[in-house]
Design a binder for these strands. Sequence first.
DNA 1: CTATTTGAACTGACCGGTCAGTGCAAAAGG
DNA 2: CCTTTTGCACTGACCGGTCAGTTCAAATAG
Lengths: 232, 232
Amino acid sequence: MSSPVASPGPEPSGRQVRPAGRHRAAPAPRPGRTAVTKQKLFDAALRLVGERGPASVTVDEIAAEAGVAKGTVYYNFGSKDGLVDALLRHGVELLAGRLREAERYADTREAVDHLVDGALGFFGEYPAFAQLLVSELWRTPGQWHGTLSLLRDDIVSILKGQMQRVADAGRLPPGVEVGTASAALFGTLLVVALDWQVFQPERTREQVRDSVLPLVHGLAAARAPEPEPPGS
Amino acid sequence: MSSPVASPGPEPSGRQVRPAGRHRAAPAPRPGRTAVTKQKLFDAALRLVGERGPASVTVDEIAAEAGVAKGTVYYNFGSKDGLVDALLRHGVELLAGRLREAERYADTREAVDHLVDGALGFFGEYPAFAQLLVSELWRTPGQWHGTLSLLRDDIVSILKGQMQRVADAGRLPPGVEVGTASAALFGTLLVVALDWQVFQPERTREQVRDSVLPLVHGLAAARAPEPEPPGS
DNA sequence: CTATTTGAACTGACCGGTCAGTGCAAAAGG
DNA sequence: CCTTTTGCACTGACCGGTCAGTTCAAATAG
């Protein structure tokens, strides 16, 4: 039942047709009704959109999957795009939260370990979100490109921070740029997680993690004096 | 101009996409304008599908972009899916061809260099294809998942072959599995290429390559002779 | 002559978005 | 304590528009 988006934030982004109360308005904080509905919609939308892509999923399907009426979607999110947008934001926020946990560890190696583990855990829990992310992140003229660019910065900056620490410790091979290493790490984690879910679902998360960790460690520890740039 | 499928030649080794269509089949291979028309359709389809995804692009748009009548699409490919399917196959075939060139080099390091360079070159030349690939490759119930799984195997097996050579040379850190390393490499190359195209288009391909190479080399080289592989 | 392409008309389904109306729980009023 | 009002949250039939796919006669190229 869990969902990557769990925030009962009372944010009726849908347009209000009626003027708000004119008497003593705002009597009491909205009961959990709205939050529950939004949660159900997030769950359903994540499942379907992750599987088949935002464009191929109909609002009717999402509503049906969530067990609510179509109008409810528009009441709560204004539009199909609004729903997807909110879904994206919440998902990234949750992922960023997990990655940021790694910042708590003073030891560089330990921090990297938790970074990898956090990312793998999140993508393993919500493969549909990983799929959604990878599908839309680089879609240039996409309607979510602006939003996603910002969201991407959130995540990459976290990775960058950690990689910078690795670099400061002098553990990065010469010539490797922090930005490139971060992008590579991000791509590696995404692809490894998706490959795991799609092509090797029988593997446990620990197995996958233990196969990725030495790879990352191998990169972040080897400092080979290679004074010869390959042919050019 | 330019397309991942470049073989307007009169005889592409008999690789016919199948005339499809419910009209009389064409037993007499007389590629007159057909090849040119298909080429135009591939170009247009790649551009649009890569940008906005297969589901969001209409056949009318593709036909218009290609400067061809809608009926021609159905005459040549039978259906929209047929067109996308052929597009996928041709693109992967071309990519695989480039990657396989790396197999010609006896030196492991040199081979890896050319592997990276080839992949980067291809993705840089056809970013729309990279986008299409990354969007559809892990879409589990997608209509192209079956096809793409096969195509993925083509590419990954090439990468795996090279990584195996690296492993045999004892240059992989202990504990790193070849399969994982291949998937990670694939993901790294894809993501780095897409990031380059989308977020840093001003960088030259050489710059990007030179920032990735030391990263890969750092991983695949200079490992203390660790004669203790943790079994399997 | 045949293979290929054209271009337009048509259809049948589907989809995003709308809106008048319903249900209900809390506040207001008595 | 009971009745009435208020308005939020939700409903679902409906509408205008779009699209994949079909068909075909005429034009064009080899």
